[in-house]
């Protein structure tokens, strides 16, 4: 198992305690393409934050690639994030004053790679996603789809164990959404990247092989979705 969660609890305490995760048990194998679905407030973002070592949990155990991720110092957490996890965000979260290629190479900067090596590797990833000619453009000169592809390149450049995508199509139109989901599917099939997508759109979830429903802080049903027929709107559609 690449990811194992045992009885994860998480309570936010902003004046009034809010029990968000109420005992999550979850296992994800190497190379899986999984989506976590749930309405807003269901706790899916909190779960993603914990999976991404962006947030702590109160109770239970989280094993990532055989390592117990618990009570890490900020430094260790940063180290694990850098080495093992790639993030793709709904709002792309590219750094505005850096060009596409500089954004892609930033994780390598924090690993201590030299500029030349970084640049070389980043260009290779951008080429792979067909963005070579946009390499020196700033994010505000790119379309939404291009931005998300840059973000995916940035997430993958450290060769992470898992790619965490938080509503990766949330800010895109339906056509680019399909492109991005196809890109993720392709990465999973050819590069065997483990991908976890968090979404509330059934169409997006339908692109993945396994759908984990989360509701009120606990895991509901888990749908195996190899045939991609989970969407009520039919196959190969992304509801918008």
């Amino acid at each position: 198992m690449l990811i194992e969660l045992h009885n994860i609890h998480k309570t936010y305490d902003n004046g009034q305690p809010l029990h968000v995760l109420k005992g999550i048990d979850l296992g994800i194998e190497q190379g899986e393409f999984v989506s976590i679905m749930g309405a807003s407030g269901s706790g899916k973002s909190t779960l993603l934050n914990i999976l991404g070592i962006l947030d702590n949990y109160d109770e239970g155990e989280y094993w990532l690639d055989g390592k117990l991720i618990k009570n890490l110092s900020e430094k260790e957490a940063a180290h694990y994030r850098n080495q093992m996890i790639g993030f793709v965000f709904q709002s792309f979260n590219l750094i505005n004053f850096k060009t596409a290629v500089e954004n892609v190479e930033l994780p390598l900067y924090y690993q201590g790679f030299g500029r030349k090596k970084r640049n070389e590797l980043a260009m290779r990833y951008l080429e792979h996603f067909g963005l070579a000619e946009w390499a020196t453009h700033y994010p505000n000169e790119l379309s939404g789809g291009q931005k998300q592809r840059v973000a995916i390149a940035r997430a993958l450049i450290t060769n992470p164990r898992i790619l965490l995508a938080d509503e990766p199509t949330g800010a895109l139109d339906s056509k680019t959404s399909v492109e991005v989901m196809n890109l993720l599917t392709d990465l999973n099939r050819t590069e065997k990247v483990t991908i976890i997508v968090v979404t509330h759109e059934s169409g997006v979830a339908n692109c993945t092989d396994k759908i984990i429903h989360i509701k009120d802080g606990i895991i509901g049903e888990t749908t195996m979705n190899e045939q991609h027929k989970a969407s009520v709107f039919g196959t190969s559609t992304i509801m918008k």
């Binding site: 900020e74 940063a78 850098n82 979260n93 924090y110 450290t158």
Partner: peptide, 16 residues
Amino acid sequence: TVEIGIRRAIGATPRD
């Protein structure tokens, strides 16, 4: 904040 958050998410330590 966003920029620093992004840097932190992709592996910058508080010291960085």
